[in-house]
Amino acid sequence: MNRWTLFALRVGVALVLLTAWHLLTAVPVGGKKLLDPFFFSTPIDVLARVWKDFYTGTIWRHLGITLLETVLAFVTGAVGGIVFGFVFARSAIVAAVFDPYIKAANALPRVVLAPIFMLWFGLGIWSKVALGFTLVFFIVFFNVYQGVREVSPTILANARMLGMNERQLLRHVYWPAALTWMFSSLHTSVGFALVGAVVGEYMGSSAGLGYKIHEAESVFDVTGVFAGMVVLAGFVIIIDMFVTAVENRLLVWRPGAQSTTAQG
């Protein structure tokens, strides 16, 4: 499909949805609006609120804090996941001993941890970073573990026959293989870092997008809630575009990877 056709269709979907929303909430049918704007707001109000948030500049501080939490959660979670993934994949004993604990810890719903983290790390950014960390860590951990374990035996044997020592194998074989798997989960793990940050803010904080939404909810300001969600959605799309750019740059060797960049 042509790029512009695709773009037009995408915009079309948004216009249809917004128009339907507008008709249902703002245009009276037989003297009565089908959906009560108090509960559903209207698209124009929401967009006006988003505009106001950016125009007055109040949103920037919250965006900045959520971004900082997301980045910190992602970086710490990824580093932890890579280190532990490597250790577990290279040591069968460690992997066997800790296997049930890892599985149990991963199965735990993270929301129940949020209050504990607030007690431990306070209401500032660190309790949100900790929540995001627990989400990102396991995704990266499992992927790196898998990646290191499933290095092609032929590539490994060949590298050994070329005379590589353990350190060189790590650098030229294990590390790139693990990175591939990590990047294949990059979209998921960055998304979860953001989820951790926003959920943490929502449950108790004084700044951030999650806080903004929670604040609006507590005074039945539906327009404010929707405005927060719109900003959040835009934020996610921008982060995702950034991740895609990084991915295309780092995984240029992968079959099919450059077909997406070659078009652009």
Binding site: I155, A157, N158, M161, P176, W253, R254
Partner: peptide, 15 residues
């Protein structure tokens, strides 16, 4: 010795 494998043994992430 140098060993030439039947299967692909090149590192796919290197040129």
């Amino acid at each position: 010795s140098g060993y030439l494998f039947q299967q692909d043994a090149l590192m796919p992430w290197k040129t």
